[in-house]
Design a binder for these strands. Sequence first.
DNA 1: GGTGAGCTTCTTTAC
DNA 2: GAAGCTCACC
Length: 659
Amino acid sequence: MSLNPAQRAAVEHCDSPLLVLAGAGSGKTRVITEKIRHLIAVRHLSAAKIAAITFTNKAAREMRERAEKLLRGVDSEGLTVCTFHSLGLKFLQIEHAAAGLRRGFSIFDTDDSASVVKDLMPRGSNAQALAAVRALMSRAKADGLSPEQAAERAQSPREREAADVYGQYQKRLAAFNAVDFDDLIRLPVALLEAHESLREAWRERLRYLLVDEYQDTNGTQYALLKLLAGPRGAFTCVGDDDQSIYAWRGADPENLHRLGTDYPNLRVITLEQNYRCARRILRAANTVIAHNPHLHPKQLWSEHAEGESIRVFECSDHEHEAERVASEIQFLAQKHKTAWNECAVLFRGNHQSRPLEKALQLLRIPYHLSGGTAFLERAEVKDVLAWLRVIANPDDDAAFLRAVAAPKREVGSTTLARLGEMANQFHLSLARAAERTDVLGNLPARSANALDGFMRVLATLRRAAHAMSAADLCRKLFQDSGQAAALRAECRDEALFERRCGNVEELAQWFDAAGKGSAGELVAQLALLTAADRDSPGNAVRLMTLHAAKGLEFAHVFIVGLEDGLLPHESSIEEGRIEEERRLFYVGITRAKTLLHLSYPRRVKRFGEVVKVTPSRFLDELPAAELHVVGRDAAQDSERSREHAGAAIARLRALFAED
DNA sequence: GGTGAGCTTCTTTAC
DNA sequence: GAAGCTCACC
């Protein structure tokens, strides 16, 4: 298949900075991969000097695969395809000294950083206050502000509080030899701004940048792009303002316009031909998104067939909805020989997956849940990771706190609080303080013994770490730390125990597959992976949030939970962010190639009580002529689905009745 | 002083 | 409907 004129222009334009406004399904990944080939094969740029930046690791992996297929016969050695955060991590691992970090520094995930914030806030601060301060702090960091700058700009008492916490928080992180997600971008930016030599070195190292999902860049990411691209502006950014769905975490769609101001010679190319969706689906998407104000309206068009109507299922409750979706998928699979992985169920929040999983399990439909509380969130995996972190970085207090309690070893909050006090006094991390006999001497003998026991195991593992692979270290510490034994005691049946050990083994295998690098470095990389990025789902129905679905496509898409208050989400309505919710819905619609199903329950359980649901206002924004509403009255209940799944549904109902 | 049982909280999205 | 907290128990 050849490129269309706009795509070709985007691929071949290399002489000035380029912005590609690419509508949904307009082949933007193709443009990026073709452009990589063009840069190497035609412009004779070394692959090692090209970086393609994506938003998720999953997107990075897919892009790398596609690029490598395309680059057969071309030397693609050293090509960088990664996320902004991975690039930042790579930068910091090389330039750690300039950043004031020691080798083996830790990456604090959202939980780690939340607990630091909690620790810094007045005792008894409620969850709202904590969340607000965390959000403001993260926002300030995403905007590239230092604590001092954040304090200067603070307008409200809460903002002042956040700026104050921010300052203390950074000191704390520095003491832990740790960085958080925001720092992975912010620190490289600060270093590149401060040191001309670094700028020169990195501009030489990366001669051309391609940025995917550009509409989701935040302030610091844009700054990083500018610093790396330099005045030459050797970059291509690809984005779509209609798919900007990350403003809540600091993404600034203004960056699209900023590009034109900062680079007057910016070339803009718009891709409007959609290669993905049936026309009906595309019309529905266009109609919905037309409700948002647009600076530069674009009109997506498609050469595909009209396709079938968009089906709207009105269901009685979440269980009924899940059952409907599951049986519809089974129908598609049986009748049309649709592969499971051609079907995706999309929802607003991770918690919505539960009833769906249940219904799919009962119909024995293989499914794969992306993100959420998957693998990396498993307690046993987090425990092993905490041990690995504290082995690599003795200053990582967050990891220490988790590791010391995995398994429980008579070191409780009181002991840890006292240890913390002494660590503060001596200006030591918890682990380093716990190594000292004078510190242990100040604790009750029993606690001191327990703590000392932990430190001995830790020291032994740390010594052993140099001589073995990260994977083997992982397996060894699982045994030697006592976690394996504790897990066996904890699990009632053998199967559960096996499964949880399997999670740890899976982690070990991930390390094996990740190849070179010390355990500490690999753990750092792992921190950037979401569950969705790591595993290959195989042939299974995909369950994921609308956010996670961006960039993907499926023949059959089910969007569930079209409830007012969920999609659009309550808090977004309150905060006047309805347009982003609409874009989210738009992203969901445009994932579908041939069939789109929308559904909502009439009643849901909330606060234990049954509450009536108002169907999403977005349903009213769809063109009524394209919709086929099913189930408004019981007699209309999808007959064919019942035929195919009658028996299973009876079992389903029985199961739900049990709960 | 650690740990587990039982009660109250608010429930987005994610690198 | 689960995570966080307090309280009683070991």
